[in-house]
Design a protein around this nucleic acid. Sequence first.
DNA 1: TAGATAGTTGACGTTAACGTAAACTAACAC
DNA 2: GTGTTAGTTTACGTTAACGTCAACTATCTA
Lengths: 134, 134
Amino acid sequence: MPEQHTYTISDLARDFDVTTRTIRFYEEKGLLSPARRGQHRIFDKADHARLELILRGKRAGLSLDESREIIDMYDPDGDNYEQYQFLLSKVDERQAQLESQIEDIKQLLTGLEEVRARCNGALKKISAGKPANT
Amino acid sequence: MPEQHTYTISDLARDFDVTTRTIRFYEEKGLLSPARRGQHRIFDKADHARLELILRGKRAGLSLDESREIIDMYDPDGDNYEQYQFLLSKVDERQAQLESQIEDIKQLLTGLEEVRARCNGALKKISAGKPANT
DNA sequence: TAGATAGTTGACGTTAACGTAAACTAACAC
DNA sequence: GTGTTAGTTTACGTTAACGTCAACTATCTA
């Protein structure tokens, strides 16, 4: 038996610190499709992992549509040659974009490094001008 | 003479491939404050640089408010000890956030690397099953 | 002098990503 | 049985980041 662990909607909400509204919204947008027991939603490990991916995408600055695109790459629709070729090209594309995004962030970081340097310079000056004020 | 190069609003729009509406919107939001000659806006090198920063922030996935926060670090308001200390702490904070954002992106990238591997595996299988189809 | 062109200020429209509130159901607690 | 506690659907509200007119002005050009 594969240890069929499940989650309620508020389990997930607690695990990832989001509201249940958010989770229902993600389902509405097709990012999650939990099972149902009557009215209630039942989430499994795969749903848990998908939500984790969605939120990682958010922190990375992606839109929900972009996150869905990435998530959908994990379980391909088709099974023929062209489908996999197409998937590979989308993987390429997304990787390139994410890498250039890292470059942008790194540039912001070095910019802040300069700010820090100037800041330290100014602080030095000030503490030199006011030697009493250590 | 300091080579006072200036730009019209559509110069900037062309340089960065955004609409003039966008630039006016950024001014409205306090991200830019160009000079005026009568009604018309006159942008200088500093404005040019600020817009570049804004758009870099966008590509990095930041909101306009977050970009403004970073941009404002480049020209500090105050000039006393506490101000610079405070600025330094904000630099710290923002750098930490950007670095953890890079980590999230890197995790997305390695996830896509796995997708690529599985994809290549599937393609191998297919082309092995259909040896005529190279 | 009459267009054409570049700029301006409103003002309303739009999409994404939820928040918030209402009205309902089902299960358990006492 | 009756709160209380999850959970549900439906629907309207909200904020960010612009797009899209409309109506106007100033300038240059034929």
